[in-house]
Write a protein that binds this DNA or RNA. Structure first.
Lengths: 143, 143
DNA sequence: CTAGATGCAAAAGATTTGCAGTTTA
DNA sequence: TAAACTGCAAATCTTTTGCATCTAG
C-alpha cells in the first residue's frame, strides 16, 4: 500500500508546513501515478488542474518531500531525474519498465547475507544499498 | 582485475577510433583510480600531464567510452555524475565509500533467484539491475 | 497578522553543439 | 590525404536563488 496524497498532506501539516493548492497538486500527481516522473512531468500534469503553478514550486516541493523521505529518487541507468512515492515501510526497491516507465516496488530483497559477505571481504561498514531492476512489463512486451 | 589504459587504447584503435594524447590522458586517469570520478575530477587530473586538454573533450571521451561499455556511471544516492572503469566481466557492482568516494567492485550478487521471483510476481521481463552499496571503508571509519 | 510559500527573472551548473582549425592513421 | 578529433564559444537544459508579493493558519 502506498501513501496517499491526503496522508502526506496530513504529515506536512502536522510538521508545520503549509498546505497550499500548489503542494496539493504536486502530491496528487505523484501519489496518483506509478510511473517514473521527472519534475517536468509533474509540472505538466499538475498544471492541468492548477494552471498557476510554477516549475520552481514543483522543484521546491520535491525537495521538501525528498528531505522528509516521503518521495525518493529513481535511478534509471541513463537518467536519474525521476521521483516516486516512497513506501510506508522504510526499505523498498523498484522495478522500472523500460517501455512505459511504470514502476513497481517491492520490499524483500534478501541482501543482508550479501552485505555481511561484503563487509567481511572488503572491510566496508555498509550502511545502505541501491537496488533497481529494469525490464519490460507485461503490457509493453505484448505491444 | 581491471582493464588497463593500454588495453582500452587497443580496443579503441581496433574499433577504428583515433588514439589522441587527450584520450590517453583520460584513460590513464580513469584506469588508474578506484575512486568515483566526476567529469570535472577527471579533467583536473588529466590536466596535470596534458595541460591543453579541454573539459569538453573529457565529456566526449566519457560518452564514447560509455557507449562502448568500457566505463560505467556510478549512481550515488545524491549524485549520479560519477564514472568508473568497467570490469572485463559483464556483470559487476560497486561498493562506494561515503567518506572518500573510493569504489570497490564485486561480481557475484546472487540476484537471479530474486529476478525470477520478481518475474513471477510482477510479470516483468527483467533484463538487468542496478545494485550499489554504500558505507565507510576501513580507513574512513578509523579517521 | 505573520511566518512561510509562491512566482518571476535571473543566476548557476552541467552537458552538448556548431564550426574552424588540427592531428592521427 | 581524409576522416576523425579538438578547443573555443555559445547554446541548451536542469536546478537553484534573490526578492517582492501573497496566503494559509
Amino acid at each position: 500500500m502506498r501513501l496517499t496524497a491526503n496522508k502526506i498532506a496530513g504529515i506536512l501539516r502536522q510538521k508545520g508546513y503549509k498546505l497550499t493548492p500548489q503542494r496539493h497538486a504536486v502530491l496528487k500527481v505523484i501519489a496518483g501515478s506509478s510511473d517514473y516522473l521527472t519534475p517536468e512531468d509533474i509540472y505538466e500534469q499538475a498544471r492541468v488542474n492548477t494552471p498557476g503553478i510554477g516549475l520552481i514550486t514543483v522543484y521546491r516541493t520535491l525537495n521538501l518531500l525528498s528531505d522528509l523521505h516521503l518521495v525518493c529518487r529513481v535511478h534509471a541507468p541513463d537518467d536519474c531525474r525521476g521521483y516516486m512515492m516512497r513506501r510506508p515501510t522504510e526499505h523498498h526497491h523498484h522495478v522500472v519498465c523500460s517501455g512505459c516507465t511504470k514502476v513497481v516496488d517491492f520490499g524483500d530483497c534478501g541482501l543482508s547475507d550479501l552485505e555481511q559477505r561484503l563487509h567481511d571481504d572488503t572491510g566496508f561498514d555498509i550502511s545502505g544499498h541501491l537496488l533497481e531492476f529494469y525490464g519490460l512489463c507485461r503490457e509493453c512486451r505484448v505491444a
